[in-house]
């Protein structure tokens, strides 16, 4: 399995969902929002909490805790991850800010969403899972 050093010049937005910490490339993290009451999407799995309208765009909210097979988080805050194909809102109970990440960027698992979470990596003293935003977007857009 290939081992890569994260690019030192790259900064990440580091945030927590419950007790787990995540990092997304800072250039994809558009803003941190408090989202309003959500509209449920018909057929949505549990981790897709719903959608809300933000500046003329309908944005899906993904509960990172449920997505990785853990517990739901009741946070109304989310990190907006903006990609050329659309935007995702990832729930965040705490936002630590932008910082470098050290470590490796290997998939944390062989299947499912864990393919798109990379590590082991650290942001300061914290263990973080580095999110591959494009991979996560593809994974969710395939009905996962």
């Amino acid at each position: 399995m290939a081992v890569h050093e994260p690019e030192a010049r790259q900064s990440y937005l580091v945030f927590a969902c419950g007790s787990s910490w995540y990092a997304v490339p800072a250039e994809t993290a558009a803003e941190v929002v408090t989202f309003p009451e959500l509209t449920r999407v018909p057929g949505a799995p549990a981790h897709l909490l719903g959608v809300f309208a933000h500046r003329g765009e309908v944005i899906p909210v993904v509960d990172m805790g449920l997505l990785v097979g853990g517990a739901s988080q009741s946070s109304r805050r989310a990190v907006l991850v903006r990609l050329p194909r659309g935007t995702l809102a990832l729930t965040a109970s705490t936002v630590a800010g932008v910082s470098p990440v050290t470590g490796t960027l290997d998939p944390l698992g062989p299947t499912g969403v864990h393919v798109h979470l990379r590590g082991p990596a650290k942001s300061g003293p914290r263990d973080v899972a580095v999110i591959d935003p494009e991979g996560l977007f593809d994974h969710l857009s395939q009905g996962a």
């Binding site: 999407v41 018909p42 057929g43 949505a44 799995p45 897709l48 959608v51 309908v58 944005i59 899906p60 993904v62 194909r85 659309g86 935007t87 995702l88 977007f137 969710l140 857009s141 395939q142 009905g143």
Partner: peptide, 9 residues
């Protein structure tokens, strides 16, 4: 969003 379209078949 594509994520929502996929969920609703």
């Amino acid at each position: 969003p594509p994520v929502a379209v996929a969920a609703s078949g």
